[in-house]
Design a protein around this nucleic acid. Structure first.
Lengths: 188, 188
DNA sequence: CAAAAACTATACCGAACGGTATACTTTTGG
DNA sequence: CCAAAAGTATACCGTTCGGTATAGTTTTTG
């Protein structure tokens, strides 16, 4: 068993359930079945552990969003593809999504928020570019790509947040409804 | 100067900027110009301090949302009134709103999330009841009050979150646009 | 005016914090 | 086969954590 991967896995579980600040290095080491110097050998510091964790997942996530946010001339299809990518990633990595969501809304001076900021910005930009591309076909959207990107991601995150707290299920039915509601709102 | 109120004020600033877990009791005491036993005299524990802080603000906030979420037969007006109440409270209490937002998305086993849960549920319920009342006049909405409440609050929180990070301004223009977009999405 | 209640500070508790110096074992490469 | 590099553990560092015992000072109240 790979120690490094195992530490990352245990850290993700703990961070996502209790929060980065509330989890001690000692605790991560114990859950991983190793000792602190081993953890420090691989990650250098507690913050280094968090960075490694974020990078290992976010690279994959951002790549998927990048692919899904390509605009091919049909906005409804693009929105649905994008929403599906978000829902699918969240369902495949619920613990990570929970942690990422908490870090995104974490206080600005916290360690977590600082590290997360740049990673989530890249993703946000992909979506904004999709709306910018679509606005060529939908004149009345012009100049509002940023707001659309933010609110669309916001709605998706709202749904995923509810799903993580078992307040709803991420069915295909919900996805289509949410996308349709958003899309009709734009056309107004 | 009232010590109790002063401690609450300083705690709010620190919690909202650095996060509940990352702030020590000692730190709050120093900023407040008092010592730890004084703080413990008033609040009993660190968690007691957080509870007192939440209750002192949330009572006011929930009352305002309760008032603003009354449905008087006109959904567009209700939505706008409600959105205005959210924006106004956030603008009047930016530090508190930042903290409350962070706590809402905090990991489920963290102290903050447990304390926040019940408070935010009351508010959520007000909004859901508004949509339920409105669905009598809008048949096609029936059965989706919960989803509408969640996504509407989600959009508002998205906007407020962006405003807190200086990514946009909460102008009346934005408010009307967001409300209109949401409302047209419903009618679809 | 005295006694009880409320308030505040000094000094301290054990535990946990993030992090490391040192040494020992295992693996790797010439 | 040996040496260098990588990996791991024991034991410890100083600091800060949340919380408190005790005692002194105000303020309120009978």
């Amino acid at each position: 068993m790979d120690n490094r991967a195992n530490i990352l896995h245990c850290a993700l579980q703990l961070f996502s359930e209790k929060g980065y600040d509330a989890v001690g290095v000692q605790e991560v080491a114990e859950w991983s079945g190793i000792t602190k110097p081993t953890l420090y050998h691989y990650f250098g510091s507690k913050l280094g552990l968090l960075k490694a964790l974020l990078e290992s997942y976010q690279a994959d996530f951002n790549a998927k969003i990048q692919t899904a946010s390509q605009y091919h001339g049909d906005l409804p299809i693009s929105l649905e593809t994008l929403a599906r990518a978000y829902f699918q990633f969240a369902q495949e990595n619920p613990a990570y999504y929970r942690m990422q969501l908490a870090l995104y809304f974490a206080p600005p001076d916290s360690d977590g928020a600082v590290v997360t900021a740049s990673l989530s910005r890249a993703q946000y930009q992909c979506v904004e570019e999709m709306f910018a591309a679509a606005s060529k076909d939908h004149g009345n959207m012009r100049g509002r790509q940023a707001l659309y990107a933010a609110t669309f991601i916001g709605v998706l995150n709202t749904c995923i947040g509810l799903w993580l707290n078992h307040a709803l299920t991420l069915e295909d039915d919900l996805l289509r409804r949410v996308v349709r509601q958003f899309q009709y709102g734009i056309y107004s």
